Computed example of a mutant assay.
Amino acid sequence: MKNKELSELSDQEVLDESKKVKSNPIANALIIGFLFGIVIYSVVVNTWGFLTLIPLWLAYHFINNSKKAKKIEQLLKERNLK
């Protein structure tokens, strides 16, 4: 799904996207918490730098992926595909 919006996808494409972005919310929450813990530890120890930004970037992508998964789940319910 590069340039297409979710609403423009066909039913089969929406089902394929839902398989791609399936995530476990508890695991995502644990990973995001762990990554923010690394950042907080890094700030406390005064080692703010490039290695501190990597966990922030990873957490951003986990959060973004969960938002996309919620949108796809809502679209599945609207189209009665599930």
Results as ranks from 00 to 15, higher is better:
residue 36 F to S: 09
residue 54 I to Y: 00
residue 66 S to I: 02
residue 21 V to R: 10
residue 80 N to H: 14
residue 42 S to H: 02
residue 55 P to N: 02
residue 50 F to T: 15
residue 29 A to N: 06
residue 51 L to C: 04
residue 14 V to D: 01
residue 6 L to C: 02
residue 63 I to T: 07
residue 45 V to F: 08
residue 13 E to D: 03
residue 33 G to K: 03
residue 73 E to T: 11
residue 74 Q to L: 09
residue 46 N to E: 15
residue 24 N to E: 07
residue 61 H to C: 04
residue 61 H to N: 12
residue 73 E to I: 06
residue 39 V to K: 01
residue 37 G to N: 02
residue 47 T to K: 14
residue 80 N to P: 06
residue 69 A to W: 05
residue 81 L to V: 01
residue 31 I to V: 15
residue 51 L to Q: 08
residue 65 N to F: 04
residue 54 I to Q: 01
residue 64 N to Y: 10
residue 74 Q to W: 07
residue 21 V to I: 14
residue 64 N to L: 06
residue 9 L to N: 00
residue 36 F to A: 08
residue 36 F to P: 03
residue 82 K to I: 13
residue 50 F to N: 13
residue 11 D to R: 02
residue 53 L to D: 10
residue 15 L to R: 11
residue 34 F to L: 09
residue 80 N to R: 15
residue 74 Q to N: 14
residue 42 S to E: 12
residue 62 F to D: 01
residue 47 T to V: 14
residue 41 Y to M: 09
residue 23 S to Y: 07
residue 60 Y to C: 04
residue 26 I to D: 08
residue 44 V to G: 05
residue 10 S to W: 01
residue 49 G to N: 06
residue 6 L to V: 09
residue 10 S to Y: 00
residue 18 S to L: 12
residue 23 S to W: 05
residue 8 E to V: 02
residue 12 Q to E: 15
residue 39 V to A: 03
residue 56 L to C: 05
residue 32 I to E: 07
residue 65 N to A: 14
residue 75 L to N: 08
residue 63 I to L: 11
residue 71 K to H: 13
residue 58 L to V: 10
residue 75 L to C: 08
residue 7 S to C: 07
residue 78 E to T: 14
residue 80 N to W: 04
residue 75 L to H: 05
residue 43 V to R: 03
residue 36 F to Y: 15
residue 22 K to H: 14
residue 43 V to D: 01
residue 19 K to A: 10
residue 65 N to L: 07
residue 79 R to P: 00
residue 75 L to W: 03
residue 7 S to K: 15
residue 72 I to H: 01
residue 19 K to Q: 12
residue 14 V to C: 00
residue 53 L to Q: 13
residue 50 F to Q: 12
residue 9 L to A: 00
residue 2 K to I: 12
residue 55 P to Q: 02
residue 29 A to P: 03
residue 67 K to D: 10
residue 55 P to Y: 03
residue 34 F to S: 12
residue 68 K to D: 10
residue 63 I to V: 10
residue 33 G to W: 00
residue 11 D to V: 02
residue 57 W to F: 15
residue 82 K to C: 05
residue 71 K to G: 09
residue 29 A to W: 01
residue 17 E to C: 08
residue 52 T to L: 06
residue 30 L to M: 10
residue 48 W to M: 12
residue 2 K to R: 09
residue 32 I to G: 04
residue 37 G to P: 01
residue 51 L to V: 08
residue 27 A to M: 11
residue 64 N to R: 10
residue 64 N to C: 05
residue 48 W to Q: 10
residue 4 K to E: 13
residue 12 Q to F: 08
residue 17 E to M: 13
residue 12 Q to H: 06
residue 74 Q to D: 12
residue 67 K to A: 12
residue 39 V to L: 00
residue 45 V to C: 05
residue 57 W to P: 06
residue 53 L to M: 14
residue 60 Y to Q: 04
residue 33 G to S: 12
residue 55 P to M: 03
residue 42 S to I: 06
residue 2 K to W: 08
residue 76 L to R: 13
residue 56 L to M: 08
residue 2 K to T: 15
residue 64 N to T: 11
residue 47 T to Y: 05
residue 49 G to I: 07
residue 79 R to T: 00
residue 9 L to V: 07
residue 8 E to H: 05
residue 22 K to G: 09
residue 32 I to C: 05
residue 34 F to M: 09
residue 50 F to I: 15
residue 57 W to C: 12
residue 34 F to W: 11
residue 53 L to V: 13
residue 76 L to C: 07
residue 51 L to I: 11
